[in-house]
Amino acid sequence: MRAAVVRTFGGPEAVEVVEAEVPEPRAREVRIKVAASALNPVDAGTRSGAFGGAGKQVGLGWDVAGTVDAVGVATAWNVGDEVVALDYGMTKPVGAHAEYVVVPTDAVALAPATADAVHAATLPLNALTAAQGLDLLEPAPGRSLLVTGAAGAVGGYVVQLAAHQGVSVTALAREGDEEFVRSLGAAHFASGGVAPAGFDAVFDAAVLGERALEWVRDGGAYVGVIPQAQPAPVRGVRTSAVEVAADGARLAELVRLVDEGVLTLRVAETYSLEEAVKAHVRQAEGGVRGRLVIVP
C-alpha cells in the first residue's frame, strides 16, 4: 500500500509517499480502508521533528474516515462498517495518510450518516480536542468563555460545543470572521488580538499563552492546546492543556451532534495521496478555513 511518511525532518519537501506493508489487525484492533484523512498542524510538527523519531520512518495522519475491512478478535466491529477514528501516535511508522490503517477497536465510531467521508475525516482529532479541553475547563451554563482562534478547526468546534451547553461564548478571531463565528453560536465577538478581561474561562486555541491568561478572571480557568506548555498559574487561575486521547465512545457522541446539526464539518480543499507535499505547502501558507483532506 502507499503511505505518506517522513524519513528526514524538514519542510513540506520532506514528505514522501512510499510503499508499505498492509498492516494486520491484532486482538482488539480493526483495519480501516482509508477513504479520507485530514491534514492537521500536528502533522507539520511531526514532519519537522518536534516529536522525535530521528533516524526512523515516521508516518503522518491522525484522522481517518473509511470502511472496516478486517478485524482482530475481541471486537464488536464488522467488515463493511463505515467508521471514523483517531489514529493516535506521534512517531508511528505509518499513519492515517495511507491506504489502510489499523487502530484499537475502542478508538472507532460509526461515521456520520449526514456527511461524506471527506467531511467526516475532519471530525476526530479536532472535535475530540475541543470536547476534552472543555472537560478540563468544566464550563457551566450561563458562565462566560473566551475562545481564541475561534474561526479555526478546533476553535470552531469549541464555540459550537460550548454554546450547545448553554455557555456564553465570546469568539476572538479576525475581523472578517465575525459573521461566521456568530453563526457557530458565539454570543459576542472580539478581534485584533484584543479581548476584554474577566472571563470565567479561556480556551486558547490560538496559542496566545500568557496574553490569553490575562483575560481570565481571578480564580478562573485556562486551557491550551499544546500539552505541558500552558502558562504558569496566576491569581488563582487554574491552567492546563489538553492532550487529546482516542475515545470511540466520545467520538460517537460527537458524530451524533454532527447528525443533529450541532457541529459543522468544514473542508477547505482535497488532495490525492500523491499530492501530499502540495497539501503540506498549502497548510504552511496559512489562512486555511476548514481542513485540508487527503484522499488515497
Rank of each mutant, 00 (worst) to 15 (best):
R7F: 01
V255D: 12
S168V: 00
G152P: 07
V5E: 05
R7V: 11
G52D: 07
E269M: 13
E260T: 01
A109P: 02
G155W: 06
F180M: 15
L128G: 04
K92M: 12
E13W: 09
G53Y: 06
V181H: 08
T270S: 13
V68G: 06
G209I: 12
I294M: 09
S240V: 09
E13N: 11
A54I: 02
P112V: 06
A276H: 13
A76F: 13
A212D: 06
T114C: 01
G149E: 03
A232C: 02
V267G: 11
Y88W: 15
G149W: 00
S48G: 08
E99Q: 11
T122M: 06
L137K: 09
G156M: 04
G166S: 09
L265I: 06
A74C: 01
V108I: 05
V242P: 05
V71N: 06
S168H: 00
K278F: 07
S168P: 00
G52C: 08
G133C: 07
V295Y: 03
A50M: 06
A162R: 00
R31P: 00
H188P: 02
D106A: 05
A246C: 15
L213A: 05
D204L: 10
G176I: 02
G11M: 09
T239A: 13
L184H: 09
F203G: 05
L110T: 00
G220V: 04
A36I: 06
K92D: 14
V73Q: 03
Q230A: 12
D200L: 04
G52A: 07
E179M: 07
A173Q: 03
R28V: 06
L146H: 04
A98D: 13
T129H: 08
D87L: 07
A121Y: 09
L254M: 08
V295L: 10
V288C: 12
A276L: 13
G193R: 06
A120Y: 12
A74M: 03
E19R: 12
T8A: 13
G89S: 14
L184Y: 12
L161C: 07
H280D: 05
Q165E: 14
T67S: 10
A190W: 00
P196Q: 00
N126S: 14
P41Y: 06
A98H: 12
D204Y: 08
G49W: 02
A107L: 11
H188V: 01
E274S: 15
F189R: 01
V42T: 05
F203I: 07
V102T: 13
G209K: 11
I226G: 00
Q230D: 10
A173W: 00
P296F: 05
A65Y: 13
V5H: 07
G66M: 14
E99I: 02
V158K: 01
P25G: 14
F9C: 04
V83H: 02
T46L: 02
D135S: 15
A107M: 15
V281H: 07
E175L: 14
A113L: 11
R47K: 10
A246Y: 15
A131G: 03
R282H: 14
H164W: 02
F203K: 02
V202Y: 06
A35V: 03
A163Q: 03
A120V: 13
A284Y: 14
S37R: 09
T8W: 10
L213M: 04
A96W: 07
V147H: 06
G166Y: 05
A96M: 10
Y222K: 11
A36K: 01
A186M: 09
A241W: 13
S240C: 11
T170G: 02
A206Q: 01
V277L: 07
G52M: 08
R182Q: 15
L137M: 08
V169L: 10
L273E: 07
A212M: 01
